[in-house]
Design a protein around this nucleic acid. Structure first.
Length: 703
DNA sequence: GAGCACTGC
């Protein structure tokens, strides 16, 4: 700890924080910023007037960093130093330094918008640009303006992004804290390889044969590529003459591996053995593998993006950004000098790669975030001109408003409704929280809680796909309920009820190919939602899935009706002559039911006329994932609402709520004149949105 | 008859 680089900058940091409400800290990997910044300010008395909060984008980071700081200060975790993540609040009235996920801080700000428990808020890892951190950046900008001048905000970022964040905060000071990485030699390819699997294979074997010991980390885009490369590597390594080089052991590493397979990379390798770790970008930030000396970087990543005009997600392989490339290279220099082999030429890195990754706020549906901001009721903040570091497109904001309108969260003028207020209390995407509220009116809340909890965890539930497992899984799956012809939501309900009847037995999960951890998560989510709904619930809520009984067809019908209301923006109508569907509320497009669905055809081979879907995802074709059968009579009111829809009105709002965005230079000096800013000219707003939209399109065009 | 990168309340 004593030799952490950041400690040499203690005086400078304290002095700068003293004089400025906002400071940006550029701290490279190994600088100790996550553990030391809070302690420095604690030493200097900043915890006398309040708690120091440090946000993290990931749960594990919040927990492990808090644990580390408690150790260094020699206090019990949960007392002077604590953490708060979903389902787990380890803080007390004694807590002075609190680590928490950015999502938890957003929740707290819902009940206490001034966040006045905190004297200092540190947004750590802001360069990752998570949706939550981006919203917090906007809220912090407002907060330093309206709270007293001894409230401090620190933002840590990456080299390439620091100036931009500083500009956002009226040119606040930027401090550089060097990291403690060993030098990493970067080697570029002469040209882009035809196949980065083959190219990685060749480079990896070259390293293995020629270079001294040290593990090799290879960045691939997804499970498929990883499995292919792993088997090729195994074959090649076997074919090397025995004794010609050291032993090798090859690990795949990606998110859908069961946890016990993931942690294998943390146990030390056998002696005289080189490890090959073939990973997705899970190894870029989330998991740190010790012993890596060589990195092979394909230059690609698989990324999910949302298209607001079609309401569809797609998963695309795209080029990484410079920040990502540097992060990957840094993985080679953690224990000693390393080498990074980039499978692309320097010119591609310099000219083609974006400086930073497109922030999440520009690639996801914003319905939840827009509802969140509306529920804050900030008199001086209007969602359409909320001050974002990078603004989302107006198209994306309009899509969010449209979605919210169709599920009654906002009215025709864009104002939040009482339903919308209740929805914002629930830690769920809007379609799911609306479903719960309707189910409560409907008398099927218990069932809806189950389905909604299952959907929140869905990707963690299904067994891993792997060739030898396939047969076994098919066989096992036939033992699971089938949704009784009503689709996937009902099946999810039936599965949970089955597990409930089996006393939440983990063996039952294993026998049926369900992921134990995923199902336990569902139980936790359901319990949490239960507690929140208890306050507004009409019925008494049994904690179990209807007292160990199965739901009836009547329950299913009520539930499907609630799902229809909650997913009013995601209704699909079947084509007359075939089993393709089209959406009602987005521009017309043909979609299919995902082949993994349990939805079945009738005697004539036709699928139901109307369904709602949970998600629209384009892979080889557009697919609806998780569909539920609904009745035609339920669709009529939705159709009427869509016809009446006027997006301009939704985004207009009352004219007097518009205010000129404050002058940037005023931030640090004038803390108390928030109310004196003149009303904005709407042209100004529109031109800002238009400019943001053009920036967005330009970026998309570069791709 | 297709396939899912990674987080989080």
């Amino acid at each position: 700890m004593a030799n952490l680089p950041i400690l040499q900058f203690e005086e400078k940091i304290v002095e700068t924080v003293e004089k400025n409400p906002v400071v940006v800290i550029i701290g490279e990997t190994g600088s100790g910023k996550s553990t030391q910044l809070s302690q420095i300010l604690h030493r200097r008395g900043y915890t006398k007037s309040g708690v120091i909060a440090v946000t993290q984008p990931r749960r594990v980071a919040a927990v492990s960093v808090a644990r580390r700081v408690a150790q260094e200060l020699d206090v019990n975790l949960g007392e002077d130093v604590g953490y708060a993540i979903r389902f787990e609040d380890r803080t007390s009235s004694k807590t002075r330094i609190k680590y928490l996920t950015d999502g938890v801080l957003l929740r707290e700000s819902l009940s206490n918008p001034m966040l006045d428990d905190y004297s200092v808020i540190i947004l750590d890892e802001a360069h990752e640009r998570s949706l939550n951190t981006d919203i917090l950046l906007g809220l912090m900008k407002r907060l330093v303006r309206i709270r007293s001048s001894n409230f401090k905000v620190l933002i840590t970022s990456a080299t390439l992004d620091g100036e931009k964040v500083s500009e956002f905060f009226s040119g606040c000071p930027v401090l550089n804290v060097p990291g403690k990485l060993y030098p990493v030699e970067i080697l570029y390819s002469k040209e882009r390889p035809g196949s980065y699997i083959e190219s990685s294979l060749k480079v990896a074997i070259d390293i293995h044969v020629r270079e001294p010991e040290g593990d090799i980390l290879i960045f691939m885009t997804g499970q498929d590529d990883i499995e292919k490369l792993v088997s090729k590597l195994e074959e090649k390594v076997r074919s090397l003459a025995e004794g010609s080089c050291m032993d090798a052991i090859i690990y795949p590493l990606h998110g859908s591996l069961p946890p016990e397979m993931q942690v294998r990379v943390f146990s030390p390798p056998p002696p005289n053995c080189r490890r090959f770790i073939v990973a997705t970008n899970i190894a870029e930030t989330s998991l740190t593998v010790d012993g890596v000396v060589y990195v092979i970087d394909s230059g690609y990543v698989k990324q999910r993006q949302y298209n607001p005009s079609s309401g569809m997600y797609s998963l695309d392989v795209i080029q990484i950004s410079k920040v990502q490339a540097n992060q990957r290279a840094g993985r080679a220099g953690r224990t000693r000098p390393g080498k990074c082999y980039r499978l692309y030429p320097f010119a591609v890195f310099r000219d083609d790669f974006l400086d930073a990754t497109v922030p999440e706020i520009q690639r996801t549906s914003l319905a939840g975030s827009v509802l969140y901001l509306k529920s804050l009721d900030l008199p001086d903040i209007d969602i359409l001109k909320f001050d974002f570091l990078d603004a989302p497109s107006s198209e994306s904001l309009e899509d969010a408003l449209k979605q919210l309108y169709l599920i009654d969260a906002i009215d025709g003028n864009g104002a939040i409704t009482s339903i919308g207020r209740t929805m914002s209390e629930l830690p769920l995407e809007p379609s799911l929280s609306r479903t719960l509220i309707e189910a409560n009116e409907n008398g099927c809340l218990s069932q809806a809680l189950t389905v909604v909890a299952m959907l929140s965890a869905e990707s963690n539930l299904l067994p891993v796909r792997s060739k030898p497992n396939e047969k076994k899984r098919k066989h096992d799956e036939s033992n699971l309920p089938d949704g009784s012809g009503f689709g996937d939501h009902i099946q999810l309900l039936q599965i949970f009820e089955c597990w409930d009847r089996n006393n939440y037995d983990t063996e039952w999960c294993k026998q049926n190919g369900m992921q134990v951890r995923g199902m336990v998560f569902v139980k936790d989510v359901r319990r949490q939602l239960c507690q929140i709904m208890q306050k507004i619930s009409k019925d008494r809520l049994e904690v179990g899935a209807r007292g160990r009984n199965s739901s009836s067809r009547d329950d299913y019908r009520k539930l499907r009706k609630a799902l229809c209301v909650g997913n009013a923006n995601q209704v699909a109508e079947r084509m007359l002559r075939h089993n393709g569907y089209r959406t009602l509320s987005f521009k017309p497009q043909l979609m299919q039911v995902h082949p993994s669905s349990v939805l079945s055809t009738d005697n004539e081979g036709m699928l139901p006329n109307y369904v709602v879907y949970h998600e629209l995802i384009s892979t080889t074709r557009p697919f609806m994932r998780n569909v539920c059968v609904i009745e035609m009579s339920w669709v009529a009111p939705i159709k009427r609402k869509i016809e009446k829809l006027n997006v301009r009105k939704l985004s207009g709002g009352p004219a007097n709520s518009f205010k000129e965005p404050e002058e940037k230079t005023e931030l640090s000096k004038n803390n108390n004149n928030a109310e004196t800013t003149p009303p904005a000219v709407s042209e100004n707003v529109e031109s800002r949105i238009e400019a943001a939209r053009e920036r967005f399109l330009a970026r998309k065009g570069q791709k």
